Amino acid sequence: MAAAAAAGAGPEMVRGQVFDVGPRYTNLSYIGEGAYGMVCSAYDNVNKVRVAIKKISPFEHQTYCQRTLREIKILLRFRHENIIGINDIIRAPTIEQMKDVYIVQDLMETDLYKLLKTQHLSNDHICYFLYQILRGLKYIHSANVLHRDLKPSNLLLNTTCDLKICDFGLARVADPDHDHTGFLTEYVATRWYRAPEIMLNSKGYTKSIDIWSVGCILAEMLSNRPIFPGKHYLDQLNHILGILGSPSQEDLNCIINLKARNYLLSLPHKNKVPWNRLFPNADSKALDLLDKMLTFNPHKRIEVEQALAHPYLEQYYDPSDEPIAEAPFKFDMELDDLPKEKLKELIFEETARFQPGYRS
């Protein structure tokens, strides 16, 4: 834990890192770190609560700039109880001085990944967590956004079992017609939660990839272990087919990539493993919904509104309290091709509203 900075004593240090967030945020305490930044909790002297502050230093890398800009653009436009918001952003007053960006968010005690390492969940908890994931996802999908990296560590939890989806750095506007060349190379989302079509096709992607990830998360809540822990690309596919069985001819016809289709045709026939054999203690309604989410063919996979209306979630289902976005989200430009200098300018502009004396 960093010592509390005395008023006016300059930035606090946390594990050798400068955290320049005073005077409003003090009493910093280390939480963890990701690929390009550290997260601390801090005391907000204005709202009198502890908050989470993520320090991001992305400006050396085009990919990190892209992810940072995506996350900020999306989260500043989203407003939903099951999606983490941005409360404040701290950065230098000029673009030349801006080396880091500090993002202030609600402090959540833990995440689903940490929880599943230590606790076996009751059916009631599984049901409530799944409902909140789908409630947040309904809003995301209504904005025409794909999260693309749903996994237990991106689901934040607090002691009252509130759940918030975080990390929109890989999110995209849904565009089933656009052929994202190089899709697989830039697709760094965790393999275990990846839909089979991501490994088999490169053309376009749809909201059904997020539903697949939610199915993987439900299976993990039922058993405290990942359902498809593939060691590499082909191993991942083999794990999936080992449980779902061989795809039907109709399902194979959806695979545009001939090499991928021929690979699947070359494999020995596998039978589907019954879900109640894998999860003998699970609620039968939970397994019915799991089956509809972990469907090989993305066109037959359940959609988020149908999933919310499934009998497993009937005690929570309330369409009048499951809000959607006001308007579909649009990125003005494809960020993939922009140089990091341009992305830095866009991050600077996007964060201006939090600067003292800002006038829109």
Rank of each mutant, 00 (worst) to 15 (best):
A5L: 14
A7D: 12
P11D: 09
P11E: 09
V14A: 10
F19G: 04
P23Y: 03
R24N: 05
Y25L: 00
Y25N: 14
Y25T: 00
S29F: 05
A35W: 01
G37D: 15
V39W: 05
A42V: 09
D44C: 13
N45W: 09
V49K: 14
R50M: 15
R50L: 14
R50P: 14
V51M: 14
I56W: 13
S57R: 14
F59A: 14
H61T: 13
Q62W: 13
Q66G: 08
R67L: 07
R67K: 15
I72V: 03
I74G: 08
R77Q: 12
N82M: 06
I83G: 02
I84Y: 03
I89G: 02
P93F: 01
P93W: 02
T94M: 14
T94V: 09
I95G: 03
I95H: 03
E96W: 04
E96G: 00
Q97R: 15
K99Y: 04
D100N: 15
M108F: 04
E109C: 04
T110L: 10
T110W: 05
T110E: 09
D111A: 14
Y113Q: 09
K114I: 15
K114C: 11
L116N: 02
K117P: 03
Q119G: 05
L121R: 00
D124A: 14
I126G: 07
C127L: 09
Y128M: 05
Y128Q: 06
F129H: 04
I133V: 01
L134A: 07
R135D: 01
G136P: 01
I140H: 05
H141L: 15
V145K: 02
L146C: 03
L150Q: 14
S153Q: 04
S153T: 02
S153G: 01
L156Y: 06
L156A: 14
L157I: 08
T160L: 08
D162P: 06
L163G: 01
L163I: 09
I165L: 06
C166K: 00
A171E: 03
A171P: 05
V173D: 08
P176C: 11
H180M: 04
G182C: 12
G182I: 12
F183A: 01
T185E: 08
E186S: 04
Y187N: 14
V188R: 07
R191N: 08
W192Q: 09
Y193I: 08
R194E: 12
A195F: 04
E197H: 01
N201S: 00
K203N: 14
Y205P: 01
D210E: 12
D210G: 00
D210L: 09
I211S: 13
I211T: 01
W212L: 14
W212Y: 09
S213E: 09
L218S: 12
L218K: 06
A219V: 12
S223W: 11
S223E: 11
N224W: 11
P226M: 01
P229V: 09
G230W: 06
G230V: 13
Y233V: 07
Y233C: 06
I240G: 06
D251H: 04
C254S: 15
I255N: 14
L258H: 05
L258T: 06
L265T: 06
L265K: 03
L267T: 02
H269C: 11
K272E: 00
V273I: 01
V273R: 00
N276I: 15
R277C: 11
P280D: 06
A282I: 03
A282Y: 02
D283K: 00
K285R: 10
A286Y: 06
D288F: 05
D288T: 12
L289Q: 14
L290W: 05
L290F: 03
D291R: 12
T295A: 00
F296S: 09
R301C: 05
I302R: 08
E303L: 00
V304T: 03
H310S: 06
Y312W: 07
Y312I: 10
L313D: 04
E314K: 13
Y316E: 06
Y317S: 11
S320E: 10
S320W: 10
E322C: 00
I324S: 09
A325L: 08
P328W: 03
F329W: 03
K330W: 00
F331D: 12
F331W: 01
M333H: 05
E334A: 02
L335Q: 14
D336T: 10
D336L: 04
K340M: 15
E341P: 13
L343F: 09
K344S: 03
L346T: 05
F348T: 12
F348M: 12
T351G: 10
P356D: 06
Y358T: 12
